[in-house]
Each structure stands twice: as structure tokens, then as C-alpha cells.
Simulated assay, not measured.
Amino acid sequence: MAFVESTTLAARGIRLVPLSLDHEEGLRAAAADGELWRIRVTSVPEPGQTRQYIADALAMREAGNRFAFAVTEEATGTVLGSTSYHDIVPPIRRVEIGWTWYAKCCQRTHVNTTCKLLMLTHAFETLQCHVVGWRTDNFNHASQRAIERLGARKDGVIRGHALRRDGSIRDTVMYSLRSGEWPEVRTQLLYLLDKPR
């Protein structure tokens, strides 16, 4: 039995469904909103690479180290982006959240906060994780701010850690949230979602 089993998560008009090849067209359209693949520090697939992006995610699911979701609008089924559990380590009940991106029209809306609330709730309350982690490019300042707004703590920087799509070597900023910190973070996320916009 897989640690992260196939599941669908939904709240506040957003639905996270297991990523499949059926999402190829929707994922390509979401990435085209803002031409997100042109951003140097993200994992968004170029239009011609969308099918391979999904196939790679499915292979990682089969291997047990990543579970990718399509982020969809519940009312219409429109694909808004993608997010994943990854670097899944069942013996220590740890997952990371990443490979996250949204169409430009969804950025700076409730979508990311809702997705994180859904994924963190599932990780801590269903999977009984001890810790949830994040990692991001040292130059992806928007991602770092978003992770810090969630209440995650910066663990440090791994220097010379990974290749970017352009072939340059990146430093990776690591964050984590422990299970004992989750109740306060959950309260804060609900507050952010409920306050008037």
C-alpha cells in the first residue's frame, strides 16, 4: 500500500484531483496564461513538453516518491495548475509540497492558500505526517515569501544543489513545518481565507 494513496481533495471551489494524461490540454492552457515556462526558476512545462511532464509525474507516483495533482475549479473542471507531494519518506512520515504553479489569473488569489490548506490538512491529519517540507530556488523570492506566509520555518540553504532548466546550478532554500506547529498554522490559513478581500 502506498503511503500517499490516490485521493481527491476539495474546498472553497477548488478541487485537487490526481494528475492524469486527461489533464494535458488543460495544463497546457493554464501554463499559457502568463507563458509560465519562461520563468527561469519554475518547473512549468513548455507547451510541447506537457505530456512528458505528466508522464514523468506518473512514473514518480509509481515509484512512490511523488503524487501530483491537477488543481481544478470545482464548478467547471477548468485546470488552474498543478501541485504535488514529493520526496515522500514513509518511515519518518515526511512529505514535501512542491512542483506547484498556477495560471497567471489565479496568482495572488485564494487558490494557493486553499491548496495549501487542503494538502497540509491531509498530510497532518490523514497521513499523520511528523513534518512537511518545501524547497525552492534561491532566486524564487515570490515562492519563498509564499512559503513563509504559511508559517513554515526556514531550515537553511543547500548550495550548488540542483540544475535549473537553463543548465545553471541553483542553491535550494529548504523550509519545514512540524506537526506540533500545524494547529496554529491551520488557524492562520483559515483566517486568511475568511477575511474580506
Rank of each mutant, 00 (worst) to 15 (best):
G160N: 10
E184L: 04
R15F: 06
S168T: 09
D155H: 00
V95P: 01
A70T: 09
T114Q: 14
Y102C: 14
A103T: 15
S168P: 00
A29D: 00
L58F: 08
S176A: 06
M60I: 11
H130D: 07
E148C: 13
G156W: 15
D22N: 04
G48F: 14
W182C: 11
T78I: 13
F139I: 11
I88F: 07
F124N: 08
R15E: 10
L118V: 14
R149L: 14
V95W: 02
G160Y: 08
A2M: 12
A103G: 13
P183D: 04
C106P: 03
R135S: 10
E184C: 04
E25T: 14
L192M: 15
R164G: 03
C105V: 14
A11L: 07
P90H: 06
S143V: 14
A55K: 10
L193P: 00
F3C: 05
T172Y: 07
E181N: 02
A68N: 11
T8I: 09
Q49M: 08
A63N: 10
K154A: 11
G151V: 14
R61P: 01
K195Y: 09
R149F: 11
K154P: 05
L19R: 01
R170V: 09
T109D: 11
T78N: 13
D33S: 05
V71F: 08
C129R: 03
E5Q: 10
I92Y: 03
I88P: 05
P91Y: 01
Q128R: 07
E184S: 03
D137P: 01
E5S: 04
N65P: 00
S176G: 04
V157K: 12
Y53H: 02
A75H: 15
V44A: 00
E96H: 04
K116D: 05
R61W: 09
